[in-house]
């Protein structure tokens, strides 16, 4: 543990994350900066969580957004119906996503490669279709927080800052956990599974358990994130909570930065969000921002499949100590 904490790569990753988080405190238009940072931090937290499964364990979850949606719904429901405090609701959201991942893990993690990816899509779609029919969660209309709820936190403005600070702290925790996993014995087992699951089992890696825990870990943070995000949003609907597209954008961020590295998803998520922001603002690209992002993704997949950080690590082996 001590040795792990002396790794400069950890501090670099944490410093970059903290810089995103603290930027609104220094910006002139703080509320605007907060919204921008919120988007970036949300993307970083989601991508870094996904990376635990995708990058370290080698399992491609196409429906990972289901954990953000489910956690968001459970937390939202508890806040809306029972007036539960945001912090507790966030934990409940994380817990429910973790439980879903645990149960699913025992079942669908037996599937390999593309079959697992397909199953995760199925799970996300089944969940969305189910929530649409689930009356306690508001069915197809979803739920809207009434304004009174914000009063408990000292008004809407205070509440938004609270959600922001929660997201910033969560993101730092995700980055730290991701680093600890990568440099631990558990993480070594995961990477062995990624490289060759059968060989890993022959060497004694209990793959079914390791995979399940990796899945749970990669689900719990999106669950918490969902509660914070939809609290800030003020309402939640099935079609916003389980957007398959966002899952895939998460994969794109991980790939862009470099899967299987700690720093990669942070940089990938931030870069992707910045790019999206720029494309949306530019009149030239506004309408075809999706197409531009697609071209970018294609170029990465075809020419730098290891992502930016992965490429740097291979190219400049001296950077390996810093680029974890």
């Amino acid at each position: 543990m001590k040795k792990q904490l002396r790794n400069p790569g950890l501090w670099l990753a944490l410093a970059i994350t903290a810089a995103f988080a603290l930027w609104p405190a220094l910006a002139s238009n703080r509320a605007y900066a907060r919204e921008t940072s919120f988007t970036i931090l949300k993307a970083v937290a989601f991508a870094a969580s996904l990376n635990i499964l995708l990058g370290f364990t080698g399992y491609v979850s196409f429906g990972h957004i289901v954990f953000l949606g489910l956690g968001g719904y459970v937390g939202f429901y508890l806040m809306d119906t029972f007036g539960l405090h945001l912090a507790l609701a966030a934990l409940a959201g994380g817990l429910s996503s973790a439980i879903l991942a645990f149960l699913l893990g025992k079942a669908i993690l037996r599937l390999r490669g593309a079959y697992f990816a397909l199953a995760t899509i199925g799970v996300n779609e089944a969940m969305r279709a189910f929530i649409k029919n689930f009356e306690p969660f508001g069915g197809p209309i979803g739920m809207t927080l009434n304004f009174g709820v914000y009063r408990a936190y000292g008004g809407p403005d205070q509440a938004l800052w609270m959600a922001y600070i929660g997201t910033a702290l969560l993101t730092i925790v995700v980055v730290l956990v991701s680093f600890l996993v990568k440099t631990s014995r558990f993480g070594l087992g995961l990477m062995a599974i990624r490289e060759n699951e059968d060989a890993a089992e022959v060497m004694g890696v209990v793959a079914p358990n390791a995979k399940t825990w990796a899945y749970v870990l990669s689900a719990v943070f999106p669950g918490i994130l969902g509660v914070l995000f939809f609290f800030k949003n003020g309402n939640i609907e099935p079609r916003d909570a389980f957007v398959l597209h966002q899952s895939i954008e998460g994969i794109v961020m991980v790939m862009l930065g470099g899967h299987g590295t700690v720093l990669g998803p942070i940089l990938g998520a931030a870069a992707y969000q910045r790019l999206r922001g720029l494309l949306l603002v530019s009149p030239l690209f506004k309408n075809i921002q999706l197409a531009v992002a697609g071209v970018l993704l294609l170029i990465i997949i075809l020419f730098i499949p290891a992502g930016a950080v992965g490429w740097l690590r291979t190219r400049f082996s001296r950077l390996r100590r810093v680029l974890v």
């Binding site: 994969i251 197409a291 294609l298």
Partner: peptide
Amino acid sequence: HRVINAPHLSTLLATFAVNMIIIGIATA
């Protein structure tokens, strides 16, 4: 073609990129 022998993730993402390109242009 370039990723036909790469792991599944590559072809999934490559075809998804095509999805984004088509949807992006056609939506515009």
